[in-house]
Amino acid sequence: MRRAPADNEPGEHSSLVLTQFLARVYSIPGEKDFLKADYYPVRRRFVLALQMCLRGLPSDDLLWRYNMFVGPLMYAMNGPQRMTRRPLVFGIAKSTVRPKACIRQMTALLVSGFHAPRHDSESAASGVAR
């Protein structure tokens, strides 16, 4: 099994590459054109697949959950070193968390989020989840 590169190591799988790419995409002139041509078709297929899996979930709820899903996905795509790095508040001891455990944790979180009770504007105003 190959070792994941550290954040400051050059390499094709370095989290730095993805982070720099995203920063560049969101700051270039013509960002909307790039996203429309290259990102939106992928997003559309992904959202349609989610709709097929989550029949009955209103579009607004589905889009909220999709948007909340993208953050953890991007974080995970930055590489296992991000997901296994221990916060300094826990001390400097080496993490015993393995990438496969991170994937299981993230999968459980996201699946739970997609199957959570609805929180549309009507139920949110009453404080009751549907």
Rank of each mutant, 00 (worst) to 15 (best):
F69W: 11
C102F: 00
N78F: 04
E9A: 10
M1E: 14
R82N: 15
S126R: 13
F34Y: 13
S121W: 05
A108I: 01
I103W: 00
P5M: 02
G11H: 02
S126Q: 12
P58F: 01
M83H: 01
R82F: 15
G11Q: 00
N78V: 05
R130G: 11
V111L: 13
A116I: 03
F34H: 07
E9D: 15
G56M: 02
M83R: 03
Y75H: 14
F34P: 01
A93K: 09
R24Q: 10
R65N: 05
L50S: 04
A37W: 01
A6P: 05
Q51A: 15
F21W: 08
H119A: 14
K100T: 07
G79Y: 05
R45A: 14
E122S: 08
R118I: 15
R130C: 06
S27C: 02
A116F: 00
I28H: 05
L73W: 12
M1V: 12
S112M: 06
M1Y: 06
R43V: 14
P5A: 02
R118P: 00
L22M: 09
H115V: 10
D38F: 14
P41K: 03
I28E: 13
Y75I: 08
F46V: 07
K32M: 13
W64G: 06
Q105P: 01
N78K: 11
V111D: 08
K100N: 10
T84L: 04
H119S: 12
R45W: 01
S123A: 04
A108P: 00
G127D: 10
L88F: 09
P41Y: 03
D33A: 15
V111E: 10
V97T: 10
A4E: 15
N8I: 06
V25N: 04
G91A: 03
R86P: 00
